[in-house]
Simulated assay, not measured.
Amino acid sequence: MTRVVLVHGIAQQYKGAQTLLADWCPALADGLSPAGVTLGPRDVAMAFYGDLFRPAGHRGPGEPELGAADVEEGLERELLLAWWRAAAETESQVAGPGTAARVRTPHLVQRALDALSHSSFFAGAGERLLIRDARQVSRYFTDPAIRAAVRERVLRALTDRTEVVVAHSLGSVVAYEALCAHPELPDLTLVTLGSPLAVRGLVLDRLEPAPVAGYGRWPAPVARWTNIADRGDVVALGKRLAPVFGDRVVDVLVHNGAKAHDVRPYLTAQETGRAIAAGLAARP
């Protein structure tokens, strides 16, 4: 019966599908209300995969502390540096990479973590959380078993009646890859929120299927695609997807206030509601 499938982003490993639905659905209803659309509980499902990143139980004192020395070379490191550069560009209180390092913290990653601690965007996220978030993205792209299992969760949530997929943050990458891999799926509408899909080097060039000459493939089941981003969203480093995935993508900018990447202000935005409502009205 599911008409709308929601796909979450990183850092949800200690939640579950019902917990997230309880958080997302009121915001989704608020966004749809101006469009005159109401969805029932059976109309919406969460494609939950956070538990795949949850550490297994053990006898130790808990998850280990993480610091700059634990940041792995490659994607994990580059993501933190990219977030740093983006935060410095949008927030005056965040010292950029061009600022001279203090003697105490000459290491580039430590400088990035220190700078991000002053960002309102990452408010409340300590070093361990920032590193863990970057590590989840890295694991998705570098661990084939994790990648396959995460995408399978999206496919499991889809039904013949699914008309709209709403995907946030890393979830937009998961949804994109899952839909590309299954061209036989019925036509649907894709709505991406705070998506990093267009970030060259870090995300775009790691997609499956790989982009050709810098352009991403259009997912065959997607009849309509609206991408919504906040100007201050540090995760959505590439705010527009149309230059990468084609002019059929409708790119929309919104203002989410202080919580630029939070899914709830994305969902309450009337622009998001209109995009979802249009998708629901499109299928006979």
Rank of each mutant, 00 (worst) to 15 (best):
R3S: 10
R3Q: 13
V4D: 00
L6H: 03
H8A: 10
H8L: 10
H8S: 08
I10H: 01
A11F: 10
Y14S: 11
A17R: 13
L20F: 11
D23F: 12
C25V: 13
C25F: 13
C25N: 04
A27L: 10
A29I: 07
A29T: 04
A35T: 10
A35S: 14
G36H: 03
G36W: 03
G40R: 14
P41I: 04
A45I: 05
F48R: 09
Y49T: 07
D51S: 15
D51Y: 14
P55Y: 06
A56E: 03
A56P: 14
H58T: 15
G60Y: 13
E63S: 14
P64Y: 15
E65Y: 14
L66E: 11
L66T: 14
A69Y: 03
E72R: 13
L75P: 05
L75F: 05
E78P: 05
L80D: 02
A86I: 15
T90A: 09
T99Q: 12
A101W: 05
A101I: 10
T105C: 08
P106T: 11
H107G: 14
H107F: 12
V109P: 00
V109A: 12
V109G: 05
Q110V: 06
L113S: 10
F121P: 00
F122R: 03
A123Q: 04
E127A: 15
L130M: 13
L130D: 01
L130Y: 00
D133M: 15
D133E: 06
R135Q: 09
T142C: 07
P144E: 06
V150P: 00
R153F: 08
L155I: 01
L155C: 00
D160A: 01
D160E: 11
D160W: 11
D160M: 07
R161E: 12
V164K: 04
A167K: 01
L170V: 10
S172Y: 02
E177F: 11
L179V: 06
H182Y: 00
D187I: 09
L188N: 06
L188P: 07
L190F: 08
V191L: 06
V191C: 04
L193N: 03
S195Q: 07
P196Y: 08
A198K: 05
V199H: 10
G201Y: 08
L202K: 04
R206N: 11
A213P: 05
Y215G: 01
G216A: 09
R217P: 00
D230I: 05
G232I: 07
V235F: 09
L237S: 13
K239T: 04
L241H: 06
L241N: 02
D247E: 14
R248S: 08
V249K: 01
G257S: 06
H261Q: 07
P265Q: 09
T268I: 08
T268M: 10
A269P: 00
Q270I: 14
G273Y: 09
A275N: 02
R283A: 12
